[in-house]
């Protein structure tokens, strides 16, 4: 259970934590789109994404997210990264410049561009992980649910039960820690009966998992029964009109944050639109007056 650190909410009280979750979700989307807006020139694209990287690093520092946690969550993706590399390096792509051959494996020429391409993809992947991590570590799951419910409000017009979905989500979130505790307890109890969850062949492992899953299900079902009793006894009716205790507030700080992220997005969008049509965007060329290598 200890490796579930990725994206776990860490209850600090920084200015990032205090932002309106609806705003945070929207800003997250803007940044993600920005990452995918690339210009024709490779070097410029890398500078631009590098800028977002720096920005995210600053936000991570402000919101007290440990970089160790980032590396931990990235380390679970190494397999994906290798696969990506292999695909890009060994699958021929006509868009690669044939003059950019790095070295030959047999008769197959490995292209520099393949490394740039895959490196760029991986870089974007890391940025995506950083963005989601910032969102989930600084926003309590509950606030996320409320924000999602808010975004789902228009769906009520087509009779989509947004409030029921939100209630279900919030209860699921509420019970995650409880069920994790329960899982650990059952694992320990079964370990006392000689179950080894870490070693053994496939057959043994399946047996071990069954000895965990069944008790967990039994207890989850009895919990859900008691929970629904408690909710009913306290007058919950999913179809009745309910008032809200918790409301989300858009503060002045939200506006500032939005302006910053909005500016980044607008900048990227402008560059993307201008690129190639009006002027070729190439920072390196502009600054050094030289055509870069790639």
């Amino acid at each position: 259970m200890n490796n579930l650190t990725f994206g776990r909410y860490s209850p600090f009280n920084t200015c990032v934590h205090r932002l309106d979750p609806r705003n945070k979700i929207f800003m997250m989307l803007l940044l993600m789109v920005s990452i995918f807006l690339k210009v024709d020139s490779w070097s410029t694209t890398l500078i631009l994404t590098g800028f977002i990287f720096l920005f995210l690093v600053i936000v991570m520092i402000i919101s007290k997210i440990r970089f160790l946690d980032l590396f931990k969550s990235l380390s679970t993706m190494w397999f994906l990264i290798i696969i990506l590399m292999v695909i890009y390096v060994f699958i021929p792509n006509p868009s690669y410049n044939p003059n950019h051959i790095a070295f030959y494996i047999g008769t197959y020429g490995v292209n520099y561009d393949a490394f740039y391409q895959s490196g760029y993809i991986i870089f974007r992947l890391i940025l995506m992980v950083m963005i989601t991590m910032i969102l989930t570590s600084t926003t309590s799951p509950m606030d996320l649910t409320y924000a999602l419910e808010w975004y789902m409000t228009p769906l009520k017009l087509v009779k989509f039960p947004a409030h029921i979905v939100a209630m279900t989500l919030s209860i699921a979130l509420r019970f995650i820690p409880t069920l994790l505790d329960e899982t650990q307890r059952i694992m320990k109890a079964q370990a006392s009966r000689g179950v080894d969850f870490n070693r053994g062949g496939l057959f043994k492992r399946v047996g071990a998992i069954i000895s965990l899953i069944i008790p967990l299900f039994v207890s989850a079902i009895s919990r859900s029964e008691e929970l629904s009793n408690a909710m009913e006894a306290r007058g919950y009716d999913p179809y009745a009109k309910r008032s809200r205790y918790r409301v989300l507030k858009f503060h002045l700080s939200d506006l500032f944050a939005f302006i910053i992220v909005g500016a980044i997005f607008a900048g990227f969008l402008t560059l993307r639109i201008y690129d190639g049509y009006i002027i070729k965007i190439d920072f390196i060329y502009w600054i050094f007056g030289a055509k870069p290598l790639f």
Binding site: M231, R234, G235, Y236, D237, A240, K241, R242, S243, R244, Y245, V247
Partner: peptide, 10 residues
Amino acid sequence: FSLENDNVPR
């Protein structure tokens, strides 16, 4: 929670 169910104003 109960109050929300009874639609009590915030």
